[in-house]
Design a binder for these strands. Structure first.
Length: 156
DNA sequence: GCCAACGTTGGC
DNA sequence: GCCAACGTTGGC
């Protein structure tokens, strides 16, 4: 019996990497996460097949832009070892990696962005981590929240 | 282990 | 570009 499907929200600045970029390349490694809480979710809990809400941060407007799914479970984020990479971490050690990433695959795009402003107005989402701990870049989403958010938009 | 200084995220 | 929230660092 397969493990129960879990759900996540992952943030990206669309000026760096947007849902349209993911649509074009179909799949990407989610590199550059340098926060321990976010790392722990990716490394310890994300499983192949889990659903991902692709969130645009620092955007006009910020909000949920599309859906993706986890296709490869955590492995070391090699950008941490590359001095030329913007996400280089001089303290990390290839023999004992600090940072991990997963691979995610494009599923579909929101007809129009589900803005943060709109999410805040929905009673059933009051306890969503996104609305309570704004800065966490990888965070769990409950099945109820997932279902409710999917019902808020048409999807291409 | 405390906490001030500092850096980063991300909404606006 | 501003700045609040909050994570990290390092002196003690």
């Amino acid at each position: 019996m397969p493990a129960k499907k879990q759900y996540w929200l992952m943030k990206s600045e669309p000026s760096v990497f947007s849902i349209d970029d993911l649509k074009v390349c179909k799949m990407t490694c989610w590199d550059g996460v340098r926060n321990y809480q976010a790392r722990n979710f990716m490394r310890d809990e994300m499983k192949r097949g889990d659903g991902v809400l692709f969130y645009h941060s620092n955007a006009q407007p910020s909000g949920i832009a599309g859906l993706a799914k986890v296709v490869q479970e955590a492995y070391p984020d090699y950008t941490a070892f590359d001095p030329k990479d913007v996400h280089y971490d001089p303290k990390s050690n290839p023999g004992k990696p600090t940072w991990y990433m997963v691979d995610v695959k494009y599923i579909k795009t929101c007809h129009s962005i589900i803005s943060l402003e709109r999410l805040r107005k929905i009673a059933g989402l009051k306890n969503m981590l996104l609305l309570r701990h704004g800065r966490l870049s990888v965070q769990p989403v409950t099945p109820e929240e997932w279902k409710m958010i999917l019902s808020l938009s048409e999807w291409d």
